[in-house]
Amino acid sequence: MIRYAANRVLGALGVLLVASVVTFSIFQLLPRVTKVDMAFYYTGRNTSPAQAAAVSERFGFDKPVWEQYWTWLSGIVTGRDLGDGVSAVHCAAPCLGYSFRQNRSVTEMLVQAFPVTLSIVIGAAVLWLAGGVAAGVIAAARRGSWFDRGSTVISLLGVSIPEFFSGMLLIYALTAGPSWLRWYSGGITYVPFTQDPVRWAVNLLPVWFCLAFLITAVYTRWTRAAMLETMSEDFITTAKAKGLRRRTVVGKHGLRAVIPTVVTLAGLDLGALLGGVIIVEYLFSFPGLGRLAYDGISTKDLPVIMGTTLFAAFLIVVANVVVDACYAILDPRVRHGG
């Protein structure tokens, strides 16, 4: 067991290392492709070569690539001191970088942005898991019924309508639509849970629906297909032959066989989404990890991009570990090494 855990941790660290090297390399390649020195992204118009050189020196762009990378990597463990004199700042461990553009540590930015993304993803996950799995199970159990046909149509709609479209529709309808629908006339704004739990939930509801609509459709379709396949298995026929009630056959035997795979999918989806739901956060102007990454990319703020990428990779790795653990709990064959 210890060996298994150690292998998983080492594997996870390896993934994170590769992710950081790839992101860092992309940014080192950028000036070579565009022929524009990195320093110019931090200077104004009419920058002299001397000004550009001064910026390069302070931000470390003039150092060898491996040294820049090592400085960044070691800062995660030991923290870093940046600048000197009146401008000196300390970036405490785990220092995932320091944004000179925003004069803030990346770790601090991630800590502020993560609860926003977490709020969006967890709420949406409850909706899509409850709605998607339930709809999929009922549709499979009542194959060919009106419910089945209706859920198929709605699922197709959900899959076909991208978030940026459904999100804009929601925003317009709820903030500037007809007066009877204008429930958010002051705009939809993120309110921290610690500040006001009710307003937190009320403002997040449209965001949850926007994100969950698309994913619920996927889960409905997938659960329906998996349930139909399971329901045609021999053990289900046996259960039915034993005279078990339909509800028991579907709920206890059919659904149980499908759940581990649903958990696997949900875990991976959660991990990926927690890294940032860029489109939804951008549309609703919620200051989460996705928007942080978007802003970092659009302003070529390398430390922010490095930090958000690594943190997103970390979340995916953690999600994988959690999924494995859940799998072991849900499926005895895994638990017993079968």
């Binding site: 931090y42 200077t43 104004g44 118009r45 009419n46 920058t47 002299s48 070569p49 001397a50 000004q51 050189a53 001064a54 910026v55 020196e57 302070r58 600048g83 401008s87 000179f100 553009r101």
Partner: peptide, 26 residues
């Protein structure tokens, strides 16, 4: 302090208010 105060329109002022080397170093 061109290494600390970066990103602004300093390029307009530096060599109008001080003698600069050919590379623009005041």
């Amino acid at each position: 302090a061109t290494d600390v105060i970066t990103g602004g329109p300093q390029g307009y002022y530096l060599c109008l208010l001080d003698k600069c080397a050919p590379d623009g170093t005041p």
